[in-house]
Design a protein around this nucleic acid. Sequence first.
DNA 1: TTTTCTGCAAATGCTTTGCATGGGA
DNA 2: TCCCATGCAAAGCATTTGCAGAAAA
Lengths: 146, 146
Amino acid sequence: MDDWQARLEELVSKLRERDYRITPQRLAILKILAVSDNHPSVEQVYEQIRREFPTTSLATVYKTIATLKEMGEVLELGFADCASRYDGKRPKPHTHLICVKCRTILDPDVKNLESVPLHVAQQAGFRLVSHRFDIYGLCPRCQSEE
Amino acid sequence: MDDWQARLEELVSKLRERDYRITPQRLAILKILAVSDNHPSVEQVYEQIRREFPTTSLATVYKTIATLKEMGEVLELGFADCASRYDGKRPKPHTHLICVKCRTILDPDVKNLESVPLHVAQQAGFRLVSHRFDIYGLCPRCQSEE
DNA sequence: TTTTCTGCAAATGCTTTGCATGGGA
DNA sequence: TCCCATGCAAAGCATTTGCAGAAAA
């Protein structure tokens, strides 16, 4: 169902193509990104990787994610008030449903919006680069805890 | 056409309602927010206000905007890689068209999306709080400078 | 062997906070 | 007069950078 192994190999070969070296730390970071569907932060990736490689530094996690971001293989969700979250499974723009309390991030199914960004951009003479559609709310669990 | 004076008075009376004091600095910040349609950053508000009140501090600008944000009278657009931008004219969520190069922010006309956030939120059992729809591209000017 | 990567620590950029003084109401 | 707001400087947090030593290829 969840073909994270294929995604991991895809990431590895894309790095090789560009002559990046496959270090154990990088491989572990790629795996975490290919497996996680909770859109982890750098800190969360760091905590996970430390269980396998206790000497890994935060800077290495930042650098690896920056490389993947630049290659378009990771989607960054930046926020005004807290750390960015990353999606390495689906690097193309898509709708996110975000709990404002616990910061859970889901990928809901949303249809019939694909054409909107291009249309709006062209209308104003812009060349479309990407887009972002976030829906903020209170998740069921956080509602019941109120 | 552009009724910034009405918006300014609205902001002033909302502050008074909550027993906030109307200082000259606050009034000047409110005016800049009510007039600007370019979604200024704190730094830009600060530069403008310094022309009128040269001793105003950045902290005061931050504090005033934080107050308005909390009151829902200013919309914050946060980014991963640069300072937040603020919209004090239209504090309700709406679509933004953003140039990735010069960081110009426009408010394009987009229809038929109003129902989407509520629908997606309910589908997943979330209580809708707000949403954000950003379209990123290269503006006409930046395209010709490439 | 060559060159890139790692890990540490220091630096950066944006934003918030603490506190003494000043100024609205 | 009484508090709240201001302005300064320091602190805070996420992220980036510089550099010497380690390790891919």
